[in-house]
Structure formats: structure tokens, C-alpha cells
């Protein structure tokens, strides 16, 4: 195997300039996914049946079709849906955020159901309203238990973000592919992109462990 990294050396900074693009997509999508995921999970555990149906239907759509298809529908479909062509970034935020909300809502639902029901009763008996009980008592305990799954979701989001390449966003993946086209060497730049993704995932893994340790303080 002959690797010729010296030929792509001048292009490495160009590939690395894609890191902020990837991070931006991941960060915004994670926030959308988390907030919407909490809302959906609360609909799912509601006693009002139609709310369950809405949330379950939402999840079935976003889990039942490929992410890359959702991204293309939102990006290429925006002129017909909204009457304007949205930017590639906005399409990426939406597609990844909405998609990850479907998965996160299932994770959080499981976490909420796993919290001892005595916690709910204790809060109610003290006169704490539903919103306070959820935000201050149930969710903090649920999130502590599901943290590994949430980190997992963030990691997949980071890697999956590579599909924004198809709508022309200059992320790590797209830039490495462009370098490949320019130098007629695809193996080295894509290998380099792989290294960047791997390092990012490792950083997330370590961050997750640090947060987990801090949250286990009360054990």
C-alpha cells in the first residue's frame, strides 16, 4: 500500500475548515432534537390519547424513512412547501433536528417511565404543579439515567451529519471529496476526514463520561 499524503498535504487545512460547518449542524440539530424530543416524550406519556397518537405518528414518519431522503425533501421541497428556497444550512438544521427529536423522544420516554412513581406522588403531595414536577423532579432523574443513550445519539448525529454533502454544504466530508477530485487521490483525503470524525467522537465520548460522573454525585 502506497500512501501519498504529501500530495494532499496543502489541502489538509481546506478539509479542516469543514469542521465548524459540521459542528454547527450538529450543535443546532442537537438543541432542536433535545427540546422537541422532551416535548414529544411528554405527549407520549400523556393520558390524553390524541396527544399520544400525534407524537407516535411523528416518530413513525421520521424513523420510518431514510434521513438522507428527509434532508432532500426539506431542501428541494422548500420552494413548493414554503414558497422560498431555504438555505442549505437551514435545511440541515431542520432535517437533523426533526429526525433526532424522534429518536430522543423515545429515549426520554423510557427514562421518564423508569423513574420511581413515588417521586411523582411525593411531588404531587407537596402541591407541586405538573410542570415543576416534570422539570425539577422527574426529568433530572430521567436524564441522569439515559445520559449514555443521549451521548450515543449525539455521536450518531455527528457522523450522520456527513450526508449534508448531498445538498452542497462544505462540511468535512464534502471538502475531502472535493480534494480527492482535484488531486485524483481519494483514499488519503477521505482517510484524513475519517480521522477528524474519529477524534470528534472521542472528544464527545470523554465529555459524556465527565458529565456522567458529575451527575452521579448524589449516588
Amino acid at each position: 500500500m502506497n500512501l501519498e499524503f504529501d500530495r494532499i498535504m496543502p489541502s489538509l487545512p481546506y478539509i479542516m475548515e469543514g469542521i465548524p460547518t459540521t459542528l454547527k449542524v450538529v450543535a443546532v440539530a442537537a438543541v432542536i432534537g433535545f427540546v422537541l424530543g422532551i416535548l414529544l416524550s411528554i405527549l407520549k406519556i400523556s393520558r390524553i390519547k390524541p396527544l399520544n397518537w400525534i407524537a407516535d405518528f411523528y416518530t413513525s414518519i421520521f424513523r420510518g424513512t431514510p434521513l438522507v431522503l428527509q434532508l432532500m425533501l426539506i431542501y428541494f421541497g422548500s420552494p413548493q412547501i414554503l414558497g422560498i428556497q431555504i438555505e442549505a444550512f437551514q435545511a440541515a438544521f431542520l432535517a437533523f433536528g426533526l429526525n433526532s427529536a424522534a429518536y430522543i423522544s423515545e429515549i426520554i420516554r423510557g427514562g421518564i417511565l423508569a423513574v420511581d412513581k413515588g417521586q411523582r406522588e411525593a411531588a404531587l403531595a407537596l402541591g407541586v404543579p405538573y410542570s415543576g414536577m416534570m422539570l425539577n423532579i422527574i426529568l433530572p432523574q430521567a436524564i441522569k439515567n439515559i445520559l449514555p443513550s443521549l451521548v450515543n445519539e449525539l455521536i450518531s448525529l455527528t457522523k450522520e451529519s456527513a450526508v449534508v454533502t448531498i445538498i452542497g454544504l462544505g462540511d468535512i466530508m464534502r471538502r475531502s471529496y472535493i480534494v480527492g477530485g482535484e488531486t485524483y487521490k481519494f483514499f488519503e483525503p477521505i482517510l484524513f476526514a475519517g480521522l477528524i470524525y474519529y477524534v470528534m467522537v472521542m472528544i464527545l465520548t470523554i465529555l459524556g463520561k465527565v458529565i456522567e460522573r458529575r451527575m452521579r454525585r448524589s449516588d
Partner: peptide
């Protein structure tokens, strides 16, 4: 079973 809030 007490039901204290374990995270507080």
C-alpha cells in the same frame, strides 16, 4: 418508602 428526591 420515603420518596425523597434522590438528586437533591
Amino acid at each position: 418508602h420515603f420518596h425523597l428526591f434522590p438528586h437533591k
